[in-house]
Design a protein around this nucleic acid. Structure first.
Lengths: 208, 208
DNA sequence: ACGGATCCATACCTGGATCCTG
DNA sequence: CAGGATCCAGGTATGGATCCGT
């Protein structure tokens, strides 16, 4: 937390220079760069293993784009969905719950300024309150239940109060195998779980 | 076949020059290069999809290293093994059988001469005879049966008349999950199916 | 001689997220 | 505005095989 708080007010370009991270210049082609920069700066384990970013602490790191007023501008990706194995998952052991057990949120200024000029904000270490976890669990059960009973085509991003399901792919034509309501094999676009921006916003600014 | 026969007598370096393939100079670091060169030269679909190299023909392409006398010098890799899913496979639908349904063998001179100097030989299009398939099927059942009943540690490369199982990994310390005889989870080196050199040799030179 | 060990290329998948049009 | 679409990085798995010590 000491090291995370030291980022407050710093611009991404300055941090990148200090740690030797090659920050891209085109925002479209550098979507994940600031997230990776902060992983590097805080010593998170690089790579995409099935573990928290700080394995010994059990802490997940996430940047969150905010505007000048502190409003969260984007949803937050949580994890991808294995559509073939969903019927064997339970909330208590789900990847969503594990990912969100303990998150270090780092706000990043998000606007049409160059990446390097974007300022980092005050980090916040968060664990779901009982009420927040209840909301997440209810959304998860609803979404997963719909998929297992009616197939992925029953589910759009309109569903879910805090947690939603949206495409997660390099292109809209990417395909993975899924099963329809009758067990048919379908090729569908890969999906992921996301947190709605309005949910993330509440947990960022709630006074404890 | 016309295009494959046109390779006969050509040296790998000459073919590489014609098609613009960057053939390596160190044999240790270029093990798969001649195979990839011939894929390119014959228009095989690049990449490692779960399909034959020539999908519309249903033909698999394999180079086979032979010495001056036409003796096959090495075993031939067939496919990797998913140790977690073996108990749900049957011979008729197995990856081994699919891979070996129809193979275009291209002999390549194998000796301590530079890669670029190695000559390509007369290609042969092969489908297993009833007797060959019976041998492969028997080996497969024996090997797979031992794994599903006693675990992968029961199986060494000594087993199998035509088909054998050997490590298939970048390093001996690579690990994948497998299950022991009592269902325990074990981390073991990844395995693949291979054809013994003596088997490949018979099918290359048998007069029809 | 050959069983176990190893080497390269590349597709796939997950994780880092934000873009952008109706 | 936000649901659907997209972009990069990098680890893993598979496919191309041959190397090499006992």
């Amino acid at each position: 937390m000491v090291r995370a708080r030291a980022l407050d007010g710093l611009r991404a370009g300055e941090l990148a220079r200090r740690v030797g991270f090659p920050l891209g210049s085109d925002p479209v082609r550098s979507k994940g760069h600031i997230g990776e920069l902060i992983e590097l700066a805080l010593g998170a384990t690089a790579g995409n293993l099935d573990q928290p970013d700080f394995p010994t602490l059990g802490v997940e790191l996430k940047t969150v784009p905010v505007d000048e007023a502190g409003r969260v501008r984007e949803s937050t990706f949580v994890c991808s969905i294995d559509l073939g194995a969903l019927d064997r998952e339970e909330w208590d052991t789900s990847r969503v719950r594990r990912k969100l057990r303990c998150v270090l949120w780092v706000p990043v200024e998000s606007s049409r300024v160059p990446l390097a000029d974007r300022r980092l904000g005050t980090p916040r270490l968060w664990r779901p309150t009982a009420a927040q976890e209840a909301t997440l669990r209810a959304d998860w059960h609803d979404l997963v239940g719909r998929i297992t009973s009616g197939g992925i085509d029953e589910v759009s991003a309109h569903l879910g109060e805090a947690l939603q399901i949206r495409p997660k792919a390099a292109s809209g034509s990417d395909r993975v195998e899924a099963h329809g309501p009758e067990g048919e094999v379908l090729d569908v676009v890969p999906r992921g779980f996301y947190l709605r921006a309005r949910f993330t916003e509440t947990l960022l600014w709630t006074v404890e």
